[in-house]
């Protein structure tokens, strides 16, 4: 079995999101980029699948800022190969184009399963798993919380609203959008990542994607939301804040007076 895990970089949301001068994108040169957390879950589920059976795991990403670090980490965790798709890739890459670029590479590959994060913080024109599955014309399931596979079939645990889980039997190949792996993503030490880095291991492949109708989606500008309201900030240190909170709870009859 051949498993492909598609990962991408997104701005670290812990940091302040600076915008470019024209306001249509976040400032990618300034921002720290990290792996999409759901892609990390997809990688972990892929690694679990690989360990459970006889599978080859290939991790693939577009050539985006700081992506080498992510690919090296994936190799250090146990991926068999890392592919970096290069081309004219700058700025925000919408999901339709991302799917087309990945599909273009995948069309020359054999694969049974494509695992990727269920969503990302910047997938404004839709989530990658459904777009990629539809473009490849293979089944796709999003919000997976467990995947098992053998003999051309996968069992996919798909979570619906309210926590109901549908267990699907899916004919392979298929694209699965992973919400959470069966276990927390594994830790890999910096020294192991360095080792992976020193032994090379990233294969660059230039891709060209067919033109897609994404020009009908025009991102005019990004703005900071004007909150309808904002919390009244409680002044003082922890002690004073605690006094206020206890007072509030008491007023609502939620702590004994």
């Amino acid at each position: 079995m051949r498993i492909v895990v598609a990962v991408k970089q997104i701005p670290d949301l812990v940091e302040e999101l600076e915008l470019t001068a024209d306001g249509t994108d976040v400032d990618r040169e300034l921002l720290k980029m990290v792996v999409n957390e759901f892609d990390d879950q997809a990688l972990e589920e892929g690694l679990c699948l690989k360990e459970a059976g006889d599978a080859e795991l290939v991790v693939v990403a577009l050539d985006e800022p700081d992506v080498d670090q992510t690919l090296h980490a994936a190799l250090a965790k146990g991926a068999d190969a890392a592919i970096k798709l290069t081309g004219a890739l700058t700025g925000w890459i919408d999901s339709h184009r991302r799917a087309a670029l990945l599909a273009s590479w995948l069309s020359g590959q054999s694969f049974d399963l494509v695992l990727t994060g269920v969503q990302a913080a910047d997938d404004l024109d839709g989530q990658l798993p459904g777009l990629l599955g539809a473009q490849l014309e293979v089944p796709h399931i999003s919000v997976a919380v467990r995947v098992e596979a053998e003999d051309g079939m996968a069992k996919v645990w798909q979570e619906l609203a309210g926590g109901t889980v549908v267990v699907d039997e899916v004919r392979l190949p298929a694209v699965i959008g992973v919400q959470a792996a069966r276990q927390a993503p594994r830790y890999v030490s910096i020294s192991r990542i360095r080792q992976a880095q020193q032994s090379g291991g990233i294969t660059e492949v230039e891709v060209q994607a067919a033109e897609l109708g994404t020009e009908q989606f025009a991102l005019r500008r990004l703005v900071a939301p004007e909150a309808a309201g904002h919390a009244e900030m409680l002044a003082g240190g922890a002690g004073e804040v605690a006094d206020r909170i206890v007072e509030l709870l008491r007023a609502k009859g939620l702590v004994r007076s």
């Binding site: 999901s95 024109d125 839709g126 459904g130 599955g133 473009q135 609203a161």
Partner: peptide, 22 residues
Amino acid sequence: TTVGMDVSTALSVHWPAPLASY
């Protein structure tokens, strides 16, 4: 939701039509 994500993305490719999410 899960249903909305599965369906909206597939429609965007197959119908086809531009999609805005969230």
